[in-house]
Structures are given as structure tokens and as C-alpha cells.
Computed example of a mutant assay.
Amino acid sequence: MYSYLLNVIPPMLFGAQCVLLMVLIKGEICPGQRGRIHKQLPVIGVAWLAISPLFWPLASVGILILAFFSQVKVSKTRDSGPLWLLKVANGFALAYNVFFILGSDRPQGLFMLFAMLFLGAGLSHVLLTFARTRLQAFHRLLPVAGIVGAMLICLAVLWQTQQYSLNYLHNTIWSLVSCFGLILLGIVASTWHIFTQKTITKTQPAIGLIMSLAAMVGFAGLLF
């Protein structure tokens, strides 16, 4: 019944995983920051487990992430762990997303591909903000990536609408407009700190992600 969530949640989680893995491997961060980022990983792991009833193999990604978390002592003195577990989890997540994309029509596949960029940037930005990371570049790069992803999502949605009758579009027009509005509001919330030149708070990217996720679930439910 809720299989359309597979168009939204797995791409979002995979995109966020890629950002966090890059930060853990390449980021010049102190052990304290690394520990705070480690604490965010269960959020992604539990989310994979939560979506797995729709496609049971997805549980393997969540199990690998939680296994990595369990092997790392979250403290200021621990700066590494069995990162190969996260790499394997990313490989599985990529494989499942590719499977879903190749099994879909072209607009739907592009929707999922762009969701990796749009929602993945949003979720990773929220997690890094809650981790109080000092990697300030991500507070600009990730919102900008979200803007680009949002524009691409809109193009994929407009392409998909061409496959439906005018009668169906007439019945769903206000729902679609609401989803476009939520995406716009989500972008404004997540980039507000850039335009106002103020210090980012935890609530801004979180509100932006909630609005963006609601819009994407709405699009998926209406069109896919």
C-alpha cells in the first residue's frame, strides 16, 4: 500500500550515508566531533529497518550501520572504527537504489536519482547540524545542493505529469501545487541562514527537511 515510499526513503538515506561516510573518512575533524557524528548513525540505521517491511533486503543496510555503531566507543578519544562496515552498507544501499531505478519508468527513475541529491543533502545537513560539526562549508554546500536537487525534482515531476489524463490532473492539481509550495518553503527554511548571514540553528534545516520530505512523499503518492 505504501510502496511509493521506496521512491523517497531509500534514496534519501543513501544520499545522507554518502555524505557522512565522506566526512568520517576525509573530514579533518577532532575526535569529539567524530564521536558526535557517530551518534547520528543510528538515525539512519533505524530508518532503514523501518522501511524494510516494504522490501526486506533493505534491513541489511540498517543492520550493518548499527553493527558499525556498536563497534565504536563513542568518546572523544576514539577517532576510528571498522569503516569497512559503512562502506559495505553504502554498497548495498547503492545496489538497492539502482535496482529500484532500473525497474522504474524513466521519469520515476530520475525522481529517485534526484531524491538522493535533494533529500540526501537535507538529511545529512540536519544530522551534521545536530552533531555540531565545525565543517562550516557543509552549511553552504549542502543547502545549495538541495536547491539544485529541488529544481531537478520539479523537472522530473513535470515530465511524469505528461503521462496522466487531464481529468486526473484536474483532480490532483491543488495537491500537486501544495507539494511544490512545500518544496519552496523547505528550501527557504534550509537556506535562511545563508541569506540572512546568521548562525545556523538546529530548527532551520530540520523544518526544511520535514517540508521537503512531505512534498516528496506527496509527489510519490500522487504520481508514482
Rank of each mutant, 00 (worst) to 15 (best):
I173T: 09
K76R: 14
I9F: 06
I147P: 02
L110V: 01
A189H: 07
R140G: 11
Q162A: 13
L222A: 08
Y2T: 07
G109E: 06
R140F: 13
F195E: 09
A215V: 02
T172N: 03
F55R: 13
C18R: 15
M116A: 13
P205W: 00
V217F: 07
L142S: 13
I65H: 05
F130H: 15
H139Q: 11
C154P: 00
F118M: 14
L113F: 04
I37R: 13
Y96D: 01
A95I: 09
T129D: 01
H170P: 00
S190Y: 00
L152F: 07
S60P: 00
F92C: 14
W174E: 06
K76H: 12
G181A: 09
L54C: 13
S80F: 03
S190L: 02
W56E: 12
T133D: 11
T191N: 12
F69D: 11
H193E: 05
L83Y: 09
N171H: 12
V177W: 07
A145M: 15
G103R: 08
C30Q: 15
S52D: 05
I29E: 08
A131D: 06
M151W: 08
M12L: 04
W48F: 06
G149F: 02
T77F: 07
L110W: 04
V72F: 10
A189N: 10
L176D: 03
G103F: 05
A67R: 04
P57Q: 15
N171E: 14
L54P: 02
Y164F: 14
G221T: 03
V98A: 13
S190D: 11
L184C: 06
M211Q: 10
L83M: 10
M216G: 02
P31T: 07
G35R: 07
T201M: 08
G186M: 06
G103V: 04
V19I: 13
S104Q: 09
I210H: 05
V72W: 06
L141A: 14
C179N: 12
S212E: 10
L155W: 10
L166G: 11
I210D: 13
I200L: 15
N90K: 06
S165V: 05
M116T: 13
A59T: 04
R132S: 12
I173D: 09
T161N: 02
L166P: 00
M12K: 02
W159D: 14
G109Q: 12
I51M: 05
K202F: 09
C30L: 15
L141I: 14
